[in-house]
Design a protein around this nucleic acid. Structure first.
Length: 274
DNA sequence: TAGGCCATCTGGTCCT
DNA sequence: AGGACCAGATGGCCTA
């Protein structure tokens, strides 16, 4: 996290005392916008007419006659169509300004905590998805995509009586993933990504597809758009370290991944005991 | 330097 | 009224 430039060394307020501290700081530094000419608050409409909360708070400190009118929700009348024009703007008393600041700071803290919780959950997901690595962390989007593929692949296994083809299992795992993540998966499984990438599908012997009982061919209702994101970062190939016993897949397989290089290997799935 | 990823702030909306 | 959730905006960091 990089704190706003005008917060200097105070850091972000994370506690109640920080709230009051930062509130005072905001009062002294006008707002986050132009103290040093660098850090601007967001103006969604781009009109830059000090229509955001902090600026609203600063504009009418001397106006006390407006009254409370029932609280903070009215600092901006929603039914006022020209509310962004800057012509009609509710003026705020000092008390309302102060409450607005505190409320916003508290909301920011809640939002931070919420996102931290989300990230924690994502990290937990990374650990149970194939190819967990402390050094080469999957991005959020790739983690979600891989998890989705993983769930789908495992569900296919459950519906099948026979153990799946490793190659097709990995192929299913990597559907829709970026090249770097595919390489990472391959590295974790000690496979050559060329052997299962969709564009190299013709390299796979046809009998591999046909002998597969747990078909991991593309799911009919399973769109796999080419990832428009991410660079085809070859560094992932270099950084990808083959995982063996500490891999997240290990609990599900009897064999280690060093066995995966054998011809047409079959996975032996250990289904969870109920 | 551009692009990807990320954390944070923010305002809006919905729900309790 | 206040909290949760969401999406847009912004800027920092990293890497090719």
């Amino acid at each position: 996290f990089t704190k706003p430039s005008n917060t200097e060394d105070s850091g972000m307020p994370v506690s109640q005392q920080d709230v009051s501290k930062w509130t005072e700081e905001c009062r002294n530094t006008q707002n986050m916008e132009t103290v040093n000419g660098e850090h601007k608050t967001m103006s969604m409409d781009g009109d830059n007419d000090d229509d955001d909360g902090f600026n609203r708070m600063e504009e009418n400190n001397d106006d006390e006659e407006q009254g409370e009118e029932g609280g903070l929700g009215e600092e901006e009348s929603l039914e006022e169509s020209p509310k962004r024009s800057g012509t009609k703007r509710k003026k705020m008393t000092k008390a309302r300004q102060q409450r607005f600041k505190v409320r916003r700071i508290k909301a920011n803290e809640r939002e931070r905590n919420r996102m931290h919780g989300l990230n924690d959950a994502l990290e937990s997901l990374r650990k149970v998805v194939p190819c967990y690595s402390n050094t080469q962390k999957l991005s959020k989007i790739e983690t979600l995509r891989l998890a989705k593929n993983y769930i789908w692949a495992l569900s296919e296994i459950l519906q099948s009586d026979e153990s799946p083809e490793l190659m097709l299992f990995v192929q299913a795992l990597c559907q829709g993933l970026s090249q770097p993540t595919t390489n990472l998966v391959a590295g974790c499984l000690q496979l050559n990504p060329r052997t299962f990438l969709p564009e190299q599908a013709q390299d796979i012997p046809s009998q591999v597809h046909q002998t597969s009982t747990a078909s991991f061919s593309l799911h009919p209702s399973y769109p796999y758009p080419s990832p428009p994101y991410g660079t085809m970062d070859s560094s992932h190939i270099h950084h990808a370290k083959p995982h063996t016993v500490d891999n997240a897949l290990e609990p599900f397989f009897e064999t280690t991944f060093t066995d995966c290089t054998s011809t047409s290997p079959r996975l032996r799935i250990l289904l969870p005991k109920h």
